[in-house]
Design a protein around this nucleic acid. Sequence first.
RNA 1: GGUCCGAUAGCUCAGUCGGUAGAGCAAAUGGCUUUUAACCAUUGGGUCCCAGGUUCGAGUCCUGGUCGGAUCACCA
Length: 501
Amino acid sequence: MKAYAPVADVSEEMAAVRATLEPGTRPPAEIKDKLNETLKALGLVRIAGRIATPIRGNFVHLTDGREKLQIYAKKGQFTLARNDGEADREPDQAWEAWQILDHGDLIGVEGYLFVTNTGEVSVHVERLFFLSKALSPMPDKMHGIEDAEIKQRQRYLDLIASSLQVKSEPPAPERGQNLTTREVFETRAKTISSLRRFLEDDGYIEVETPMLTPKATGAAAKPFKTHHNALDIDLYARIAPELYLKRLLVGGFEKVYELNRNFRNEGISHKHNPEFTMLEFYCAYMDVNGMMDFCERLIQESVRRATGDLTVTYEGNEIDLSKFERITMRDAIAKYAPSFDVDDANLVEAFDTHVEANLIQPTFIIDYPKSISPLSKASPENPEIAERFELFINGMEVANGFSELNDPHEQLARFKDQAEARERGDDEAMVLDEDYVRALSYGMPPAAGIGIGIDRLVMLLTNKHSIRDVILFPHMRPERPLEGSEASRAADHSDQMKDES
RNA sequence: GGUCCGAUAGCUCAGUCGGUAGAGCAAAUGGCUUUUAACCAUUGGGUCCCAGGUUCGAGUCCUGGUCGGAUCACCA
């Protein structure tokens, strides 16, 4: 199959011609004729895409998912290419084929560019290629898909809908952060590639550590459990890569990162999905303060690259990412709940209930209690405080970092405290990893590390309230069998096979 | 898991007091053929989420369930 140019970008010349035209106004005839000469001199273009408007008359728009380009087919002036390589069908048959095309079909066209009377750059079709049929009807071209369930279960349809949608709104910059589904996932991709670039420019290397692990540790969470048949051992989907990454610090890698999925067998909510994407990275010879500085620059630079701006509007709040506040947990409680009588026992609870939701602008909360930070180094000034921070934006925890505990004896003691907590019934207390303690016994450089919740960061940048809107295929309960569909027939068949066996 | 809200044509949505199931878009047929979401005419299209109940009669009221959304708890 020959290549087709993307609809969005037939040529630089076309873009140049487009730039000279004023949208919505009819160009004077002499200007139009001159432009058409220029465009025709470019020769034939060949583009493919989905038919974005119902076939009515000679004009139709093709979409590549992002941009639309109008094509013009005139009876008698184009042929229909055959898939078997034989000579093209004659114009009469080509016109018949054109007339039976449907909204949503995929076609290719070959032709020359021209400007219409209304000043839109279009392709004058000389050859039509039929590429694929849309058997199921397309969503409403004005409203797209509104049903959250269809959007998530049938993301392909949601994406098609957003590409077919007639834009009565201005393009992205003026629209603020009211993005199409396509744009949301493009922003996500840009954010992730920007994070990778920033880290790599700073000397970090990307590593991959096990997703299936014999111990679910490195965080406090309930794991997914599975079984490996050949080894006959239980394995757990990882809840965090942390302990593997720090083993690499022991091994001599000074800057490592991993950007991939974690799995936690816990509740689903607008900010929780059972699998979620985490960026974790570790830097030797750095401490918690250096890590906060670096985290701030990393997020700022990635946001700038992904959205072009350091201010985002999220659910009506203007969020200024140019400055990250730093405040201790105790001071934050004093600030947001001044009447609250804080002691060591109720500190964390007071923070969760009275402070978190107020942290709209980027804020590092520092001085976490050591008791809830089993992997982080204690402060030299106060042994009850961990050298740890969490970053909050719009009331949501986005990152968690600390100076890494690198004393094997103390680490073992902390694991034992966790084991006791587990025996007391805390089934999310951290699991002891003996090999990790052994690794520390060979000497881990002082280091700082951090985990950044990528889905939540993307929610912020795309103004999405639900994590399911920034994950292409979020987890949901299974749908009932689709009656009368291919899928249900396949299911019936497999039931039958079971009965027979 | 608790609480609240929702489910009607392929899509977006109406549906009054319990009394024949509606619109726009999409689809089909014909017309038009340089148009900018919605041209003109005609036509087809429904398990009103499922199962019970009340009633002469249920899309509508009641009970239970399914799926989704919001929220609380847990968590990142």
